[in-house]
Amino acid sequence: MVAIAAQNIQMSFMSGTTETKVLKGIDLAIPSGQIRLMMGPSGSGKTTLLSILAGILTPTAGQVQLLGQEITTLSRKELTGFRRDHIGFIFQSFNLFPALTALENIELALQLKGYKGPGNKEQAFDLLKQVGLGDRANNLPADLSGGQKQRVAIARALAGEPELIMADEPTAALDSATGHDVIELMQYLAKNKGCTVLIITHDPRITDAADEITYLEDGILAKQSSLVSGFH
């Protein structure tokens, strides 16, 4: 089954009177359970494509299906609901809530996804333990290292067991060793939980975590995605 599919995605931005075509017809199909890396030079449109695939940005043309559901026809409200129910996000700059502890950050995500009640705390704590931060539950983000913050963010993205994980340069703010650990953790948990993962990255050192790599260049996909061999 294809978890993330897109046909002929086009995106243009108007700046003043000049129109910039950022995406020029993208076709994509990511099978369920796959970890897909998307790479490409800066400004090639990776983040724009991810935003479209996540239903945050509406493309100028083209269709997107997530988990078999056509999303380009959904209303803004329906898209929000779809994200809440099916997508976990991981960001380059973590975007944790600075006033909340590590544990509360995850609890809030669970709350948002409709999990109520006293079980939330345990569930959040369980996720924290899965990312190896059981002993940092009551730390505020400011008191965590970059790698720890991103691990909290991973736990938060996994809250509510979404089928899809989308990450935009999750290792860019981390040194390479830490970045590698974080990606390995993502890989392990995603495989464990059967999530389909799309990761945008610049980082060539994490390519060994991917099932397949897509290259985006100047708004179009490079002719061939490379299937990473030697995985497992």
Binding site: I56, T80, F82, R84, I87, F89, N95, F97, L112
Partner: peptide
């Protein structure tokens, strides 16, 4: 603003 953006991305409704 970034926090509210994050909430929106995570699927928080307007009412949330």
């Amino acid at each position: 603003l970034r926090e509210f953006g994050t909430l929106k991305a995570m699927g928080a409704s307007d009412w949330d």
